[in-house]
């Protein structure tokens, strides 16, 4: 086995996990919302990018922009739907409602895009870089760069800007934020729109690696769930580290032990972490660390 190649694969996959997870991380940290519809939002992002390229012939980068815009719109729709539950912090009902939202998205995408698998063709997927014993595609390099950029920007925005302070305040206490004269629903709108835009951006960058299907939502992001929860609720740096760690773990576990049981192994890790350290989930102090 080529260890160096597996490490490179792990780093690329890990950045993909982290980028797919970033919107969800913010949503979970700021609104306590476990978004089980995240996978279907990813699928919609990929299909919108594909459709823009297939139907209008626009170049790849414009398709990425279109997917991000539509993703943000989808996030805004979610905010309109879930605002009441979010404000009352009915966490468990919120969780179920996102399951239903995901089902609805999957049904709608099936009606709109049909059952056939498609390929989101990125010109960078064909270009590869060979460095000694390892190789990767230019798309992979762009993915890693974009992920680092998004995380850095989000971290700076949360810690150095007025807007970030407002988001952290909502995460800490929505009522108090409202007393402070902020429009809580507007801040939530921004958070939800970021979730939608971020996952669509991730989809447009990650999806060229594999064929896309309208039923792929669950499988594609199931690891993201682990990244988000294991990274610590809403912790931006935590989810980057968790994404990278799980990427390396899956690459090495898949190569050394068994590719089939990778998901089970990662989820067993998650269960162990949650059961041994349940306090980690309840703590709100870890947000935006």
């Amino acid at each position: 086995m080529n260890v160096a190649q597996q490490l490179v694969n792990g780093i690329v996959i890990g950045h993909a996990y982290a980028l797919v997870a970033v919107g969800w991380t913010l949503l979970l940290g700021a609104a306590r919302l476990v978004n089980f519809g995240h996978g279907q939002m990813y699928m919609i992002g990929a299909f919108v990018a594909w459709w823009v390229m297939a139907a209008t012939g626009l170049p790849y980068w414009l398709a990425v922009v279109a997917a991000v815009l539509l993703g943000a719109a989808l996030g805004a729709v979610m905010q309109r739907l879930f605002l009441r539950l979010t404000l009352s912090q009915d966490l468990v009902n919120l969780m179920i409602v996102t399951l239903g939202f995901g089902q609805a998205l999957e049904g709608a995408a099936g009606l709109a895009f049909g059952p056939k698998p498609q390929t989101l063709a990125s010109p960078f997927q064909e270009m590869s870089v060979h460095l000694g014993p390892v190789w990767f595609t230019v798309q992979d390099a762009i993915l890693v760069g974009a992920t680092i950029l998004v995380f850095a920007l989000l971290y700076l925005a949360l810690h150095r800007s007025w807007l970030g302070a407002a988001v952290r305040m909502v995460a800490e206490d929505p009522r108090l934020t409202a007393l402070g004269g902020f429009k809580v629903s507007r801040i939530y709108m921004g958070i939800f729109a970021f979730e939608g835009a971020a996952v669509a951006f991730a989809a447009a960058l990650v999806a060229p690696r594999t064929p896309i299907l309208t039923s792929m939502g669950f499988d594609q992001v199931v690891m993201t769930f682990v990244v988000v929860v294991l990274g610590g609720i809403g912790s931006v740096l935590g989810s980057y580290v968790a994404g990278l760690g799980i990427g390396l773990f899956t690459a090495l576990f898949g190569a050394l032990v068994s590719p089939a049981y990778t998901t089970a192994a990662v989820f067993a890790l998650l269960i162990a972490a949650m059961v041994l350290r349940p306090g980690q989930l309840a703590a709100s102090g870890s947000f935006a660390r």
Partner: peptide
């Protein structure tokens, strides 16, 4: 049907 199920739940 999936769409209906999801919309009903939401």
């Amino acid at each position: 049907d999936k769409l209906v199920l999801g919309v009903v739940l939401v």
